[in-house]
């Protein structure tokens, strides 16, 4: 079976005056059709850069230095811009944290939707409007007919994000990349938007890459997780396995730092220190200055992601390499 997405050794750098900064340091993962993956980690870990680079949306000083991205078997990372644009917003859709990244404030919802549909399909305006209406009802927008005539600012935040989801569905993509789609929303609305996204992915067998720092949301929505730290994936595997039995000390720390429910009120586990600035990543394992298990080898050699063939998932940590 061909993978929906196959990311191989992707390296992304930013050309700065002080030299090149490596934001993504060789990441690898695959996604099957209809599979949902969470990309988690702290601010600055490289989650958004990873998401953007898949569809070659890296902005100016940034560039893909090496690696390949295969989408439905095609090497899209080698595509010229024109061809890439065709894939973006057609077979792969992107949803951003801020719906206004997608919506044009001076056009009505209807105009934006009809234009998108007509840019990708040879249909009449009337037919395009029908498609738009259908998609709006699909994301549970009430009185969709009325919404077509409204401007983005006339809608609430949650409604705007649902409109963005409706727009991203217009072309029946097989992959959605959602970068913190509900971070700006209230819990009740977040639950609604995420439940919707999950339902739509299941119904139409769409793949999903969900970028977020919220492990709770990831565990509700995804089947597998990749945990990023300082530009690398340090652990990946089935969501349940990672949430219930994380193996990388960083993942363990992240999960233990969360209030566990039950209202215990005791001290929370805290990971000492903070994630390094990408301009000064420590040698060896980038996590070693914060890791309570750090050994000599951790300061010298960068651990590679590997699996032991028994435990599900992959982990990049010398603790496990030793017992290999």
């Amino acid at each position: 079976m061909t993978h929906l997405l196959d990311v191989q050794d992707l390296v992304v750098k930013f050309r700065l005056r002080s030299g090149d900064l490596t934001a993504l340091n060789g990441i690898n993962f695959t996604l099957n059709p209809g599979e949902r993956m969470g990309l988690v980690g702290e601010s600055g870990a490289g989650k958004s850069v990873a998401g953007f680079s898949i569809i070659n949306l890296i902005s100016k000083p940034g560039f893909i230095a090496s690696g390949r991205v295969l989408f439905e078997g095609e090497e899209i990372s080698a595509y010229p811009l024109e061809q890439m644009r065709d894939i973006r917003g057609n077979r792969i859709s992107m949803i951003f944290q801020d719906p206004m990244m997608t919506l044009n404030p001076v056009l009505t919802i209807g105009t934006q939707m009809v234009e998108t549909i007509m840019a990708h399909n040879k249909v009449s305006v009337t037919h395009a409007r029908e498609i738009a209406l259908e998609k709006l009802s699909k994301v549970y927008i009430s009185s969709p007919g009325k919404r077509l005539g409204q401007y983005p600012h006339e809608l609430s935040g949650g409604m705007r994000q649902r409109v963005v989801i409706a727009i991203s569905l217009l072309t029946n993509p097989s992959l959605i990349i959602a970068d913190e789609p509900t971070t700006a929303l209230d819990v009740t609305i977040q639950a609604e938007v995420m439940a919707l996204l999950l339902e739509l992915c299941r119904d139409d067998n769409m793949g999903l890459i969900l970028i977020t720092h919220d492990l709770g949301v990831v565990s509700q929505v995804t089947e597998k997780i990749a945990v990023m730290y300082a530009g690398r994936i340090v652990e990946q595997g089935p969501t349940e396995a990672i949430v219930s039995a994380p193996r990388h000390p960083y993942t363990q720390g992240l999960i233990k730092a969360l209030p566990q429910g039950g209202g215990g009120g005791g001290r929370l586990h805290q990971i000492p220190g903070m994630m390094p600035n990408l301009t000064s990543i420590p040698p060896g394992c980038a996590f070693h200055p914060r890791c309570e298990h750090a050994m000599d080898i951790c300061r010298r050699e960068t651990p590679q992601l590997f699996g032991d063939g028994q435990t599900p998932g992959l982990v990049a940590c010398h603790l496990y390499a030793q017992t290999r």
Binding site: S156, M159, V187, A191, L198, G216, S219, Q220, S244, L258
Partner: peptide, 22 residues
């Protein structure tokens, strides 16, 4: 409704109380 919407680690899917309207 508010408490039913908390994303919890290790819970699959959603069982929140849906509120109508805005």
């Amino acid at each position: 409704a508010l408490l039913s919407a908390i994303p919890r680690l290790g819970t699959k899917g959603f069982s929140h109380i849906r509120l109508k309207g805005e």
